[in-house]
Amino acid sequence: MMDVMGFFDIVLALALPWLGWRLLASSDLFRAVVLFISLGLLMSLTWVRLQAPDVALAEAAIGAGLTGALFLSALRRLERLSESERRLEHAGKREEDETIPPEKRRRAKPVAYVLSLFLLVVFVLLLGWSLGQTPGAKGGLGPAVAGQMGQSGVQSQVTAVLLNFRGYDTLLEMMVLFLAALGVWSLTRVRQTQQGEVPGPVLATLVRLLVPLMIIVAGYLVWIGSSRAGGAFQGGAVLAAAGVLLLLANVTVVRQVPAGLLRWALVLGPLLFLLTAVACMGGGGNLLEYPGQSAGVWILFIESATAVSIGVTLAALYAGGRPPAPSAPEKDNEEGPGSGVDKGGKA
């Protein structure tokens, strides 16, 4: 048994760089993105092998799933943008041209290529050497965390670190996510959907079946996060996946979510988290120092709010822009992420 797992480890450890190399070397961007998604799934297997189930869940949902969806939608948008130009130039010729240059340049300037490769190898060897020199504290902060678990209010060590011991990390992370949404919203507006883009019967049925299930799974992940693998980020990611599915299916409910509700859903998590953090100072404690024995309740409260916001934010990032102006016809709105919240309320 042990040998089988050892063999599996070797294959996995070799497959990761190989996939990475293949995806960067492939001349087709779509293929590169698909390889990237499969690399994410293999990474998530690796996390399981390395005893990090929390990270595995997050990687599968966010690293492979949502990042892949982001890349695919960006690719589609790029292709749609270049289509008009391509019609002017030689059909289909440009795509090839723009993806081949690395090899062409490589042949054109071998000295530069060899030099860059040499520098890279030296740099990586130095990095590896410095990794080897790093003093390995046995167990790191593991014993310290285990010693304080009684006061954390939860049973899962990772959740305790995320929301209690190093709560400010997570607070700032929420702010980064919020800033990303603000950045995307300030840069672009959601493109008007093509009229009459109706999902096929398979997709429509799938959405009807999957979305409620995903909302339940998200709730379960947030709840179970206090004692096992799971938590706000994994739950939020599943919620976001439901939002992406709704966006893809172009459901009518999705388009009728008022922009105001969407904005509040985006702000909800970071705002409540920040208010809680500051409120903790009111009792004479430090930032995010939950008073007394109530840490568990506070953590659950923050996690629920942040999970909703993470879901809405990630889905809004997928939508790739702020909702269309209020003056635009209501039927053209393509801002679906909020609907996940709506349904969450009903469920």
Binding site: Q51, G139, L141, G142, P143, A146, F165
Partner: peptide, 8 residues
């Protein structure tokens, strides 16, 4: 034991 801080 496993160090949960890097995981987080």
């Amino acid at each position: 034991m496993i160090d949960p801080v890097p995981h987080a």
